[in-house]
Structures are given as C-alpha cells and as structure tokens.
C-alpha cells in the first residue's frame, strides 16, 4: 500500500523534474525538426512579398538541378580531405604521449590548446598568418626557397586563390584542368583545420584507448622480438579499431555540417565560391535570401546523409566492438 503511494508520487516527481528540460526540448528541438521537414515542401519565405504555397517535392527537384548545390557539395567533401590526415596525426601524437616520459602533461596541454581556443578570434589570427605579402607563412616559404636557390617560384596567395591541389576548375569542376593546380583557399582552411584539431579531442580519445590495451599483449610481443613498428601494426592498430571507427564517423558527421565559421571569417565563402560549404549555403539561402523552405530542403538532404552514416555506425560499430 505504502509502496504504491510512493510509486504514484514518483510519477509526478519524475515528470516535475524533467518538465523544464522537456519543455525546451520540445520547443527548440523536436517541434522545429518536424516543422522544418514540413516546411521543406513549401516555398516558405520570410519576405512578405512571397505568398505561402505548398510545392510538393519541387525544392528537392530544384536542388537536384541546382549547380551551386553540387559545387558546394564538392567543396564540403574537398575540405573533409584534411580529416584523415588529422586523424593520422592524432594517432601518432597519442602514441608518443603514451610512452612513459617526463612532461607528458605539458605536451598534452599545449597540443590541446588550439582546439580549446578555436573560434573567430583564432580564425582572424590565421587570416593574418596567410597574408600573401606580410604573413609569416609566406615569409617562411620565401626564406626556404631562397636557401634552396629557387627564388623564382610563385608563392601561394592562399585565401584569395581558387587554386587547389586537385586542379579543380572553380566553375566547371573538370578534374585535370592544370591551370588551377596549386595551393589556394581550400588548402589554407584544411591546413588550419589540421593545426586546430590534430592535438585535440581525437588525440585524447586515442590516449584513453591506448591506455586500455592490456599490457601483456606488448610483453608477449616483446618476448617474440617484435619491434615497435610491428607492435604498433599488429597490436595497437587492431586494438584501436573501434576508437578509429568512432573518430572517423564523428569526423564525417562533423565535416559534412562544418565549414561555415571558418569560411565566413577567412574568405566569406570565396574566392569564386570555392570555400562555400553546404552549411554556408544554407546560411545564404535562409538568412540572406530568406528562402526558408528551400534552405530547409537542403538541411534535410544533409540530415539524410548524416542519418545514413549514423546507421552505418550503429550496424557496423556495434558489431566491431562485440
């Protein structure tokens, strides 16, 4: 009897405790998600002149034929090319920091500093670093080239250049157009991204994972005379597979919706739209052109891709860990 009264009271307590959070959760997350899906089938526009209409799948159809959408999709994927480099560096650093050395905490702290302070202020700093005439990056390259005796090589103009290492033409996207081969704005953003993230969250995750590897695996390997590379290749790397999988998936998800902040500060999406990513495109459509319906459609396409990756994570991720 007393027990059931307690239970009854618990229901109300449970609801009361969750109420403030749940209210916000409904109002700013759940309802907006459904609302945005519904609105992606409309021409919803915040400008008063446009009258509201349901347009069925037209936004998605238009999107499919929207050249800018495809260009910006390519940009988004291009900027994600830095992710594998970044992960490899994180793993490398985590390995070094897992040795028993003095001063490990100091190294770890300094490596994590860029991640912790990343934001507009740091991007403004990098904008100065990339200045083609007065910036220290080109000054260093010039100095190196002079030492090497090849002073005539043209220095990269970084943020104002549409050149790229794949030689992609900014408008036609034809792989093989060599005139665009070189270092440009996209490489600048990638390099900055690597600097920011290599010693960040992924490195810490790897350090935690490495410390969980049973030490007797290494002891056995040492008795067999395995060198440090063989130990890494046959013990560390396979043992870290679930962590790597998680990091890669999170990197994909983050990369697909990223790039706005960096591009807005460093290049304003240019030159020739080469650093405009999908999230930037949504910003332009929604908050500069006020085409909320169309922007919602782009957001939902992005969401669909991210959802697909999450599904892959659930199916393969759990299998690998088990």
């Amino acid at each position: 009897m007393k027990n059931s009264r307690r239970k009854h009271r618990d229901i109300w307590a449970g609801l009361a405790f969750i109420a403030p959070n749940f209210l916000g959760f409904m109002l700013f997350l759940l309802v907006p998600v459904i609302f945005s899906l519904v609105m992606s089938f409309s021409n919803w526009n915040l400008m008063k002149e446009v009258s509201f209409q349901w347009v069925g799948f037209r936004n998605f159809f238009d999107l499919f034929h929207d050249r800018e959408f495809w260009l910006y999709s390519i940009n988004t994927v291009y900027l994600m090319l830095g992710i594998p480099v970044c992960i490899a560096l994180s793993l490398f650093l985590a390995n070094l920091l897992s040795k028993q050395l003095r001063g490990i905490v100091v190294y770890r702290t300094l490596f994590y500093l860029p991640t912790f302070t990343a934001g507009v202020a740091l991007f403004v700093l990098w904008k100065s670093l990339y200045n083609p005439e007065y910036g220290p990056i080109n000054a260093a390259i010039r100095w190196l080239l002079e030492r090497a005796g090849t002073a005539h090589v043209e220095l990269p103009s970084w943020l104002s250049s549409a050149k790229n290492l794949l030689g992609l033409h900014p408008e036609q996207i034809m792989i093989g157009v060599r005139e665009f081969f070189g270092l440009g704005a996209r490489e600048a953003i990638i390099i900055m991204g690597i600097w920011v993230a290599a010693g960040g969250t992924n490195m810490l995750l790897y350090i935690a994972a490495i410390s969980n590897i049973p030490p007797d695996l290494y002891e056995a390997a040492e008795i067999d005379g395995a060198g440090s590379w063989a130990q890494f290749r046959h013990i560390t790397w396979p043992q870290l597979a679930p962590t790597t999988f998680f990091i890669v998936i999170m990197g994909f998800i983050g990369g697909l919706q990223g790039g706005f902040e960096q591009a807005r500060v460093l290049t304003a999406g240019g030159p020739a739209g080469t650093t405009t990513t999908l999230s930037y495109y949504i910003y332009i459509k929604a908050f500069e052109e006020f085409q909320m319906g169309y922007a919602s459609a782009i957001a939902w396409v992005l969401f669909a891709v991210i959802f697909a990756i999450t599904l892959v994570n659930w199916t393969f991720g759990s299998r690998k860990i088990n």
Partner: peptide, 14 residues
C-alpha cells in the same frame, strides 16, 4: 545526431 542547421531555421522563425 540532428544537425544544428536543421533546427536553426524554425528556431529563428520562432
């Protein structure tokens, strides 16, 4: 896993 850009637009309107 819902990307921020999905909820950003309705939240702005709200």
């Amino acid at each position: 896993m819902i990307p921020g850009v999905v909820t950003m637009i309705p939240n702005y309107a709200l």
